[in-house]
């Protein structure tokens, strides 16, 4: 079932979150970072913001073929204490 588990707020409905972008691969030129996207059927690494809740920025690992979310962290690696 597609809910996102916000690391701060817990499980919340997908409509509370706003997709920002797919994260580009590490390194690469400014052009690549802004315009090029990694194209994979198994893994999409994305930035979402929990705009309907805590406004935290999330790093989401998702399988674009099935929609299943495998991981959801706060961007920047922060863990709420």
């Amino acid at each position: 079932m597609t809910r996102l588990i916000c690391p701060f707020c817990g499980p919340r409905h997908l409509r509370e979150f706003e997709f920002h972008k797919t994260v580009a691969a590490e390194g690469g030129s400014a052009f690549a970072r802004v315009y090029e996207r990694v194209d994979s059927a198994e893994l999409s690494i994305e930035h979402w913001q929990h705009v309907g809740g805590c406004r935290g920025w999330l790093l989401v690992r998702r399988n674009p073929s099935t929609g299943a979310v495998t991981d959801c962290q706060l961007v920047g690696g922060g863990e709420p204490a």
Partner: peptide
């Protein structure tokens, strides 16, 4: 605000 927050965190 989101633009600033995103840049700061990411």
């Amino acid at each position: 605000l989101s633009h600033f927050e995103h840049y700061r965190d990411a």
